[in-house]
Design a protein around this nucleic acid. Structure first.
Lengths: 187, 187
DNA sequence: CGCCGAGTTGAACTGAATCAAGAAACGTGG
DNA sequence: CCACGTTTCTTGATTCAGTTCAACTCGGCG
């Protein structure tokens, strides 16, 4: 649990009682590679913090498997739109490695927000962090070539290269496996 | 100002004193077409609510003009990453039509957050709303053809078609003006 | 050993960009 | 109110980045 509080300490300074309240709703789970955290077309009721392991969020678009997001240690995984809007979403979250996960149940969190102002603040900060991350990823896709996107990956999250299967990584970057293989050969 | 409070009432229920406090920091401004709200490589200190008019957020990427976002009546315009991270950003916000804008100064807002729990809640909701919007736009770009993206525009924001110059709209959709013109001819 | 999944490489194809030329629409000043 | 230049939009021809399809290589493992 320390890892979680360490991670959020970057943008939030919780009082002891808030920290205590939050720790009571944090649940530790451990699953093997291939485990599905969120099934297709369901409402996502959890935010997941990855203490150890690797997850990917993906969906089927016109029959094709599209990887939307990848989360490694000390980051969050969530089917964001569903979590926020409370509507089912096509997104699936699966584990690419055996993982240790801390989960936060939506309703528990909603209960804490009105009671603890600084947890509400944490919620805002986390939404803001997510927003900047998605925006940056959007920028990277907007009028960039395959090579540019590969270079961004090398710069921002080079660790994915040796951990994430090539086909999934390619999809994450918005290109085919063959193209990613060629980009890699080029550098 | 009513328009603003009407818009945010969709996701927030402010108490009277919070509403009062917020109304005190809301500033009304009015500018002609072509006016620049945020200059390139500056810190964005404002969130703008568009009561009347049209704005676009854009930047230069390898010399090319890339339109990142468009905001019409009853929506928000902001150089989000800069506003959140407090760092300069390449994004520029300009008016595509003469507009009536309500602006919220970052520091004023930050001052209200700790004082009014429900304004902090509003901040979280707004960040969450922004997050879902950017995510949806990202999805639309990820492995979609030019025609699919044009169809999404027709479905989600058809009003842009008659208000936004074709070249800007094309850039917003991640294609060239010529391609958008052809997609339009196809339907 | 031989199979199997993961990655590479090659050749043909295609969606969209680029380059180029016109056609409309738009505003401004005479 | 029209003439003119400017910007906006369309259409065509060519090029190119990246996909698709297909065959092949490599390493791990029963």
């Amino acid at each position: 649990m320390d890892k979680f509080f360490e991670a959020i300490s970057a943008f939030s300074n919780l009082k002891n009682d808030s920290k205590q309240a939050l720790s009571l709703i944090l649940k530790r789970v451990e699953f093997p590679k291939g485990h599905i955290l969120i099934k297709e077309n369901t409402i996502c009721n959890y935010v997941y913090f990855v203490e150890k392991g690797l997850t990917r969020t993906y969906y089927y678009k016109s029959g094709k498997d599209v990887t939307d997001w990848i989360s490694a240690e000390n980051s969050f995984a969530c089917s964001i739109i569903s979590f926020i809007t409370r509507k089912p979403d096509r997104r699936i979250i699966e584990l690419l490695e055996p993982s240790v996960i801390w989960s936060l149940y939506h309703r528990d969190l909603e209960n804490l927000y009105p009671k603890y102002h600084d947890i509400e603040n944490l919620g805002r900060r986390m939404a803001e962090l997510g927003l900047t991350q998605v925006q940056q990823r959007f920028d990277d896709l907007h009028f960039s070539t395959a090579l540019q996107r590969y270079k961004t990956l090398l710069k921002d999250t080079p660790s994915y290269i040796n951990r994430v299967p090539l086909g999934i990584l390619a999809s994450y970057l918005g290109m085919t496996q063959e193209t990613l293989s060629r980009m890699r050969a080029k550098i």
